[in-house]
Computed example of a mutant assay.
Amino acid sequence: GASKVDFRDPKIWKGKDGNFYCVIGSRPADGSGQILLYRSENGFDWKFVSILAKNKKRFGKMWECPDFFELDGKHVLLTSPQDMLPEGLEYHNGNGTLCIIGEMDQDKYTLKEQFAQSVDYGIDFYAMQTLGTPDGRRIMIGWMQNWDTIAHRCNDSKWFAQMSLPRELSVKNGRLYQTPIKELDAMRKDRVEYNNVVINNDTISLDKIEGRTIDMELVIRPEDKENVYKKFALRFAQNERFHTELCFRPDESVLKIDRKFSGSERALVHQRRCLVNGDANELKLRVILDRFSAEVFINDGEQVMSAVIFTEQEAKGISFFAEGAAKIDVVKYDLV
Rank of each mutant, 00 (worst) to 15 (best):
V76R: 01
V76I: 15
V76S: 06
V76K: 00
L77S: 11
L77R: 08
L77E: 15
L78M: 15
L78K: 14
L78N: 05
T79K: 02
T79C: 14
T79E: 00
T79I: 03
S80Q: 15
S80K: 07
P81K: 10
P81W: 03
P81N: 11
P81L: 09
P81M: 11
Q82M: 14
Q82E: 12
Q82W: 04
D83I: 02
M84P: 02
P86T: 07
P86S: 09
E87I: 05
E87Y: 04
E87L: 08
E87H: 10
G88S: 03
L89Q: 13
L89I: 13
L89T: 06
E90N: 01
E90Q: 13
E90S: 02
Y91C: 03
Y91V: 00
Y91Q: 06
H92P: 10
N93H: 15
G94N: 11
N95M: 12
N95A: 15
N95R: 06
G96D: 12
G96R: 00
G96M: 11
T97M: 08
T97D: 07
T97P: 09
L98W: 04
L98F: 04
C99S: 14
G102V: 05
G102W: 00
E103Y: 02
E103S: 13
E103V: 04
E103D: 15
M104Y: 00
M104K: 03
M104N: 00
M104W: 13
M104I: 03
D105A: 10
D105K: 12
Q106H: 13
Q106F: 04
Q106W: 12
D107L: 07
D107A: 08
Y109T: 01
T110Q: 15
T110S: 06
L111T: 12
L111W: 01
L111M: 09
L111A: 08
L111Q: 06
K112C: 10
K112M: 07
E113R: 05
Q114F: 05
F115H: 06
F115P: 05
F115K: 00
A116T: 14
S118C: 09
S118P: 02
V119G: 13
V119Y: 05
V119N: 03
D120L: 15
D120Q: 00
Y121E: 05
Y121G: 04
Y121C: 13
G122C: 10
I123E: 08
D124E: 15
D124I: 04
F125R: 00
F125A: 10
F125D: 10
Y126G: 13
A127R: 07
A127P: 09
A127N: 06
